[in-house]
């Protein structure tokens, strides 16, 4: 699915170079559940956003199903983010003035190839995640666990092959964390979606089929 070769991302910080990613080479197989671990500043989120077509690498190559991702035009990259990958973030990042249903429908606004009626699809996704009675609630009216489930539903809106999850349980208590991890596991096992999850939680590591560890931008395990 993803082939990374010497992927490097260098930031300039106060005149000094910071290697967020340092010659990362790895292969991520379609249908795997990859867990990326590492301490703060190790480059986990940078790697995830690079895989998501958001951060352009400084050098190296990143191929998705054989195509060089960063040779895409900006519109192609936007379409990639919209349809091939779905993001689940630590802080949920729901649009605060839209209902749960509308939050799930936002990515569908950009997808003209969607066969299913957007509102029905969004309602079905929320139903699958146990939120059928919360469709018309605003994010502030939902619990933290419910907000993260809405975020997962939004990530699934356009039926992506890959879910990119950045510390999805970082703001949740252990019980809710387990609930979210099970949902992601189900998406991987039952729907064969590739899951790439960045986490520093030891418990979360157990859900992965493959684990990578980063330290100061380098792949150490």
């Amino acid at each position: 699915m993803f082939t990374l070769e010497n992927l490097t991302k260098i930031y300039q910080h106060r005149g000094e170079e910071v290697h967020a990613l340092d010659k990362i080479t790895m292969e991520i197989v379609q249908g795997s559940f990859v867990v990326v671990t590492g301490g703060s500043g190790s480059g986990k989120t940078t790697l995830l956003l690079t895989l998501g077509g958001i951060i352009h690498p400084t050098s190296g190559s990143l191929r998705v199903k054989g195509a060089s991702l960063y040779d895409y035009s900006s519109n192609q990259l936007a379409a990639y983010r919209n349809r091939t990958v779905g993001f689940v973030l630590q802080t949920f990042n729901l649009v605060p003035y839209l209902t749960a249903l509308e939050n799930v429908m936002i990515p569908m606004l950009l997808n003209r190839d969607l066969e299913e009626e957007p509102q029905n699809r969004a309602a079905n996704l929320l139903d699958q995640l146990g939120l059928s009675s919360r469709q018309h609630f605003l994010p502030r009216e939902l619990s933290i666990g419910q907000q993260q489930r809405v975020a997962i539903a939004r990530a699934l809106a356009n039926d992506p092959d890959v879910i990119l999850a950045d510390e999805p349980t970082g703001n949740l208590d252990p019980k809710l964390s387990l609930e979210i991890l099970r949902i992601l596991k189900d998406l991987n096992q039952k729907e064969s979606r590739t899951i790439i999850m960045v986490t520093h939680s030891p418990a979360a590591v157990e859900f992965g089929t493959k684990t990578f560890r980063l330290d100061q931008g380098r792949l150490v395990a």
């Binding site: 993001f87 990042n93 649009v95 605060p96 936002i106």
Partner: peptide
Amino acid sequence: KEIGTLITIGFTRGR
């Protein structure tokens, strides 16, 4: 933050 979120779900800068 909303702008960042919209970019992750496929919004172009133009949009």
